[in-house]
Design a protein around this nucleic acid. Structure first.
Length: 153
DNA sequence: GCCAACGTTGGC
DNA sequence: GCCAACGTTGGC
């Protein structure tokens, strides 16, 4: 089993959108970055996910989710009407993939980015989320970091 | 293959 | 709204 962090903008799709989605689950479509795509293709059913709110007043981890379907073609790349349409991707040989994720629970409070950053030099050394200039929307989390961060709740 | 221009991400 | 960081594109 592996551990991940996935970013989403709360104004677009926040933790409450996942909580109230049908089956409390959704397909994670729209990823158009090769590194993030490659991480998603490594995901397995049962993998744990930190749900992270980005581009908002208080960026940080707000909930937990899990992988419920492994990577498959992101159909939004085939739709010319979709904002994430990519003419280079096709059904025979898809460029982009998505996984399905399911809500587990909200945290009792937001574990903020600044809080994580304050420990970047010690307990959370090497956390990719804290790497300078990092913009990846899908990030692997070391198991020891996962447990440490959860204990901050 | 280099690199400038451009678009996007995301913290602040 | 600003801007640094980064990825992608396209001319050469």
């Amino acid at each position: 089993m592996s551990f991940w962090l996935m970013k989403s903008e709360p104004d677009v799709f926040g933790i409450d959108n996942l909580r109230t989605a049908r089956g409390k689950r959704t397909c994670w479509d729209g990823v158009r970055n090769y590194q993030a795509r490659n991480f998603m293709r490594k995901m397995e059913v049962g993998d744990r996910i930190f749900f992270y709110h980005s581009n908002c007043a208080e960026p940080g981890i707000v909930g937990l989710a899990k992988v419920v379907k492994e990577a498959y073609a992101d159909h939004t790349a085939f739709d010319p009407q979709d904002a994430h349409f990519d003419p280079k991707s096709n059904r025979q040989q898809p460029t982009w993939f998505m996984v399905d994720v399911q809500f587990e629970r909200k945290l009792s409070r937001t574990i903020t980015l600044s809080e994580l950053r304050s420990q970047a030099q010690s307990a959370l050394d090497g956390l990719l989320l804290l790497r300078r200039g990092n913009r990846l929307s899908v990030i692997p989390i070391a198991e020891k970091h996962w447990h440490y961060i959860l204990a901050l709740e």
